[in-house]
C-alpha cells in the first residue's frame, strides 16, 4: 500500500452534513466525538470546512433543497473523499420514503462508500462502520 493511502487511512478527517434529518443521527455523530467514544484514537477529527475533509458523513433524507447543496458540497471536496451514509433516512429515506419532499435516496445523488443502518445508529455502530470501511479499503489494495 502506498504511503499516501496509508496516511489517509490513519487520519481520516470527517465533515458532518445534515440533509434534513430529525437531528437524532446528528446527535449520535456528536456522541462519537465525546470522551467516552473518542474517535481521535483512530486519528479522526471533525473537519471544520469541507476543504479539509476526507470523509463526508451524511445524515437525513436529502430533501429537495438540501440535495442540491449536497451535490455542490461533494464537488467542492478535495479528492479522495468518501461518503458515508448514517441512519435509515440517508440510506433509503426511512419513514419519509413516500414524502413529496424526498425524491431521491442519497446514493442516487453522490456515490456512497459505506452505509450505517439504524434509526439512529448507536455511536458504537458508527465507529464499527468507519473501522470496517477503513479495513475494506486496506483489503482491496
Amino acid at each position: 500500500m502506498s504511503l499516501k493511502l496509508r496516511a489517509l487511512l490513519k487520519s481520516p478527517w470527517v465533515f458532518h452534513l445534515a440533509t434534513g434529518s430529525c437531528n437524532n443521527c446528528d446527535i449520535e455523530v456528536l456522541d462519537c466525538l465525546t470522551p467516552r467514544f473518542d474517535i481521535e484514537r483512530f486519528g479522526m477529527l471533525l473537519a471544520p470546512s469541507i476543504k479539509h475533509a476526507d470523509i463526508l458523513l451524511v445524515t437525513g433524507s436529502c430533501n429537495r433543497k438540501s440535495a442540491i447543496r449536497l451535490e455542490r458540497l461533494y464537488k467542492q471536496a478535495p479528492q479522495p473523499c468518501l461518503v458515508v451514509a448514517i441512519g435509515e433516512c440517508s440510506m433509503s429515506r426511512g419513514m419519509f420514503i413516500h414524502s413529496y419532499n424526498c425524491p431521491l435516496p442519497l446514493d442516487k445523488i453522490v456515490p456512497v462508500s459505506a452505509y450505517i443502518p439504524g434509526c439512529p445508529p448507536k455511536p458504537e455502530a458508527i465507529i464499527a462502520g468507519a473501522v470496517t470501511l477503513i479495513q475494506t479499503i486496506k483489503g482491496t489494495l
Binding site: 489517509l8 490513519k10 487520519s11 470522551p35 473518542d38 484514537r41 486519528g43 478535495p78 479528492q79
Partner: peptide, 27 residues
C-alpha cells in the same frame, strides 16, 4: 486527551496528518 479522560491519538498521528494532506488534491 488525557485531561479530558480520553485515550488520545497514536504517536505518529501528526506525521500521518501532514503526509495525508500533502497527498490530497489542492483546490
Amino acid at each position: 486527551a488525557r485531561v479530558q479522560y480520553r485515550k488520545g491519538p497514536p504517536f505518529f498521528q501528526p506525521w500521518y496528518d501532514i503526509i495525508k494532506l500533502l497527498g490530497k488534491e489542492t483546490i
